[in-house]
């Protein structure tokens, strides 16, 4: 019997197989899913912003693409995973509102680029990516199979 662990906005968690990780209602935010299949450890982070560099006085590493990748790797390694064996799947980074203010509304796109950059820097291979668009996503990551189930409203479900 597997449990489903909920990951909130600006939050991250790691589990052992066969537990699942879930985060609901990703808009411009991104769900970063990492797995080490040999150690049977999986992790998920729900990031809101691309970079911790531009922020003032926040100690929550799960909020930013750059620091969340580091923190998630550390947490998974403390459970016996190895960074060399980790692979990634990511989803989210939508643009929910179409308004004139491009700066705020391009946040999803900037998040996606930052997450890809942070994973490349750690030499973690991205096996699948479902980012962009103008719709929300709820995602469930299966630590046993490494499948990432993506649910939408009106656009059905898919597994990457």
């Amino acid at each position: 019997m597997s449990n489903i662990m909920q990951v909130g906005m600006a939050d991250l968690k790691a589990v052992r197989s066969p537990d699942k990780l879930m985060t609901a209602g990703l808009g411009s935010c991104i769900g970063i899913c990492l797995i080490d299949k040999t150690a049977k450890v999986a992790g998920m982070a729900h990031i809101m912003l691309p970079s911790s560099q531009t922020s003032r006085g926040s100690s929550n590493r799960a909020k930013f693409a750059d620091t969340a990748v580091d923190a998630l790797i550390e947490q998974m390694e403390s459970m016996g995973a190895s960074k060399r064996r980790m692979t990634a799947k990511i989803a989210g980074g939508a643009q929910m509102f179409n308004t004139g203010n491009s700066d705020i509304m391009k946040i999803g796109e900037r998040n996606a680029r930052a997450v890809v950059g942070a994973l490349n820097e750690k030499n973690i291979k991205i096996l699948a990516q479902d980012t962009g668009g103008n719709y929300g996503r709820t995602i469930i990551f299966d630590s046993e199979s490494g499948d990432l189930l993506i649910r939408t409203i009106g656009l059905g479900e898919r597994t990457i």
């Binding site: 906005m9 808009g27 411009s28 935010c29 922020s55 705020i104």
Partner: peptide, 15 residues
Amino acid sequence: DMAGALLDGVLAQYG
């Protein structure tokens, strides 16, 4: 859409 999805881009500004 989903409430979280509509709100997160707005909340990110405060992040």
